[in-house]
Design a protein around this nucleic acid. Sequence first.
DNA 1: CGTCCGCTTGAATAGTTTCAATTGAAGTGG
DNA 2: CCACTTCAATTGAAACTATTCAAGCGGACG
Lengths: 243, 243
Amino acid sequence: MYKVSCAECPLRKYEIFEPFTAEEIAFMHSFKAGELVVEPGTTVMMEGMPSPQLYTILEGLGVRYRTLEDGERQVINFALPGDLIGLQAALMGEMSHSFEATTDMRLCVFNKNDLWRLFQHHPQRSYDLTWLSAVEEHFLGEALSTLGRRSAVERVGWALLRVHARLRAVGLESNGAVPMPWRQRDLADALGLSLVHTNKTLQKLRADNLAQWVDGMLSIPDPFALAQVASVDLEAPQRRPLI
Amino acid sequence: MYKVSCAECPLRKYEIFEPFTAEEIAFMHSFKAGELVVEPGTTVMMEGMPSPQLYTILEGLGVRYRTLEDGERQVINFALPGDLIGLQAALMGEMSHSFEATTDMRLCVFNKNDLWRLFQHHPQRSYDLTWLSAVEEHFLGEALSTLGRRSAVERVGWALLRVHARLRAVGLESNGAVPMPWRQRDLADALGLSLVHTNKTLQKLRADNLAQWVDGMLSIPDPFALAQVASVDLEAPQRRPLI
DNA sequence: CGTCCGCTTGAATAGTTTCAATTGAAGTGG
DNA sequence: CCACTTCAATTGAAACTATTCAAGCGGACG
């Protein structure tokens, strides 16, 4: 664990919209407690457990999931750089889902005690935090409709389009492809489908050249065509990292 | 539209935990813009539309839902007294779901412009708002796992238990029964099941005397038995109204 | 070289949807 | 006051989608 310059911290992204005051920059330095580097497969936060800390993903990809009574797993969503992890634990006392790193990951660590300090002295930042929470709620609502009312092809197509767009938004696209390090098992658990059926659906999309997901890389030759097949509205607002 | 005494406003519930200062009470009076009374079936907020206002349900029951491209409807959740409606529109600019009153309803109206004032001058209240948002996220996660990984009996059982508990929590239980004014169609759309299958599942639960939902009233003779059948963890945290 | 893991395949099964039609209660207009 | 419409709940049967079970394949790794 070591301190890094604020320039490397995603909090800096704010500057695009509104420059920081000297006081604010000083505050953020004090807010950031350090960094955490973890290996693939590491469970960073566990459902039901309290956590004294709050994280922002600096680098790497992960997955948020819940475990059901019968041992089944429901993936809540995939986590990308810029995502905030552990707000629930900070506010509610304990996490309602687990968080696991899928690749090597570098996290920016904040102390949950400092959160209250943020609310007291930085209304703009706390407003943004609430905004972030509202955005999360929005995307969960979208996921809910997908699981509730869509066929396998639509679910898989929707998930690939969303993940692709988000990875592009955080600048992880190269040569028209984005990293997709998760397993078919993860996608199946995210979409409420069996592994077998997810596999067959992926093959269908691959055969029609609508989406290529091979060797941990995903490319979507024609997003509009895939959106058509998956009945997805491409115009829907995309998530953008804030903190 | 007319002003009501603060004693009638749910914001007053805070006093249970922490007395208001004179300044805060004055602030809340200024925050509350008035009241809105609507009839059953009224769409209070529409997905995709901005809204200059923010509501708290004082009385009555409603439903939050999204409409999909193909016209299908996904119920996000059922809304009870104490629930905050329209935070998304206030923060993100537009609603990601619609809100409709199921029964006669009385709403407390706030102006979205005042929200920023809240964040600036009342850190405790804005913290609570974020907390509320985190709780909402928690319950959406629970709904997501239910739709993704559970059978029809489990879904229906889960929904009935949750709604029952929430209605009880806001004091709407009488003679062991709570009001359940929604239609089988609404429940089906909430659970991602067909109407026919929802109907047959309800009948099964009724036959086994696990849940009686007739004439708009719901009673659950033995919650533990139902929780058993539905593989639901009764110990899971319940939502409590905050604002 | 053997084991593990992720991906793939086929066949049988089960759960859920869709279609089509009926009932009863409540509301509407002549 | 009675036909007529409407809406929610209900039923049965047929069709289908997705799950489960079971097995095989290939690459990675010790």
